[in-house]
Design a protein around this nucleic acid. Structure first.
Length: 386
RNA sequence: GCACAGGUGGCCGAGCGGUUAAUGGCAGCAGACUGUAAAUCUGCCGCUCCUUGCGAGCUACGGAGGUUCGAAUCCUCCCCUGUGCA
């Protein structure tokens, strides 16, 4: 049995082909560009995919990158960015962007925050100053930044979490999802580029939580679908749980999400994981791993992981990945990359990151090709009106 | 030549009579990293052996002696380095 030919259409999302395993080849039409999915999104928290210039991101095939509400609010400030024309213009990135809501920081900055129903009080990791984030505030910041996609303000539940804790955390996330959506709908026209693209609109995605409790997860998905977001994310994964469990949650929840809207698994993963999830029907993923690991000397290659700092590469004049055609592998040797790491040269971070991103994006490219070989013909960069 | 100050494990540098194979830092070796408080963090880092253990032995704080139950730490002589004065 070949892949079925059912095509799902929605405002900004066209599913071109769906495979037997559930994987979808689709196009996501966003205000700043059309993104081919399944897609991997490099993380650019503070307005930069660390160590990689924007033009290089483009040349390795990045179509959409992330920014972070919390970090950009603290510095340089969302209002300043709005005054400068929005995040795209500020960072000179004409492609698509997505901003995370700050929900992950509720998790990662656990030592620096206090959560109440109303919102979260953070102590800035930069200067210790106090800041109160509510769903409404997160929306205001994300609208001011003006990414193509904003995320609901959620609480990324830690692992392990007792059932009561996960339920309470989910209750908060669901209430915040409602408030996020209401505030977003009332203010989404205030994006900095609205005058430039009057017929395009920013999207808001809801985030499924529920810890590792499948019934809570299901409940979360159902409630979010009821609220009718532009897309749906599965959050709270890869926070330390066993990998089979991650897969179980994804496989269980994906079918509950609308087929005609993008599905995004947040914060994953290793190369084999993103391929696996994409073939299962995940349309979007993001992860700091390719860039962070790169800065730490870990390269992902067709031959597996290569810790380029290892002595064995000291005089290895082979390319980092012989099977890779990226601009780094075409030009530089393992020996040189190791030398740059050893010497603490900033170029090491750049070259390693470029390779890893090229590798990740190459994986997704291949997955897209095998999911729908004839999909490209329908491709178009025209944005679809709301 | 005289006067000070010094000579500590690959390097820098603590220790100044006993939990010292010797604090730290760097360098080195390896590991971790999953909606970025991360160019970070963790482990190892004198030699040998094994029953791999808060194991055994050996060697070590410029050199040689000495004092002491015990010395990198105190004393004597010698060698060397830096600074100042001749």
């Amino acid at each position: 049995m070949g892949p079925d030919r059912i095509v799902w259409m929605s405002s900004g999302f066209q599913v071109l082909q769906t495979s037997e395993s559930g994987g979808r080849r689709a196009q996501l039409n966003l205000p700043h560009r059309t993104v081919e999915t399944p897609v991997f999104m490099p993380v650019g928290t503070a307005g930069t995919v660390k160590a990689v210039p924007q033009d290089v991101l483009e040349s390795v095939g990045a179509e959409i990158i992330l920014g972070n509400t919390y970090h950009l609010y603290l510095r340089p400030g969302h209002e300043a960015i709005h005054r400068m024309g929005g995040l795209h213009r500020f960072i000179a990135w004409p492609g698509a962007m997505l901003t995370d809501s700050g929900g992950f920081q509720v998790y990662s900055l656990a030592q620096l925050r206090k959560v109440t129903d109303e919102g979260v009080r953070f102590r800035s990791h930069l200067d210790g100053s106090s800041h109160f984030f509510t769903p409404e505030h997160s929306m205001d910041v994300q609208i001011a930044l003006g990414a193509d996609i904003a995320m609901a303000f959620d609480e990324c539940t830690e692992y392990p979490a007792e059932r009561d804790r996960a339920r309470e955390s989910l209750r908060l996330t669901m209430a915040w999802a409602r408030r996020s959506l209401d505030h977003f709908r009332a203010h989404q026209h205030e994006v900095p580029w609205q005058a430039e693209f009057p017929d395009r609109r920013q999207s808001l995605f809801g985030i499924v939580q529920g810890g590792m409790y499948m019934d809570l997860r299901r409940e979360s998905a159902e409630q979010l679908v009821e609220m009718d977001f532009d897309g749906y994310a599965i959050g709270g994964l890869s926070v330390g749980e066993p990998r089979p469990l991650t897969l179980e949650v994804i496989a269980e929840i994906l079918p509950l999400l609308p087929k005609d809207k993008p599905r995004y698994v947040m914060g994953v993963g290793y190369p084999d994981e993103i391929e696996q999830y994409a073939r299962l029907g995940v349309d979007m993923m993001d992860c700091v791993l390719p860039t962070r690991a790169a800065r730490h000397g870990l390269l992902f290659t067709s031959e597996g992981r290569v810790n380029i700092k290892n002595r064995q590469y000291a005089e290895d004049m082979n390319p980092p990945d012989p099977a890779c055609g990226c601009m780094v592998c075409r030009r530089y040797s393992r020996a040189y990359l190791r030398h740059l790491m050893q010497a603490g040269e900033p170029l090491a971070a750049t070259l390693n990151s470029v390779h890893n991103l090229a590798y990740y994006l190459g994986i997704m490219q291949r997955v897209r090709e095998t999911l729908g070989k004839d999909a490209a013909a329908t491709g178009s960069n025209a944005a679809v009106p709301a």
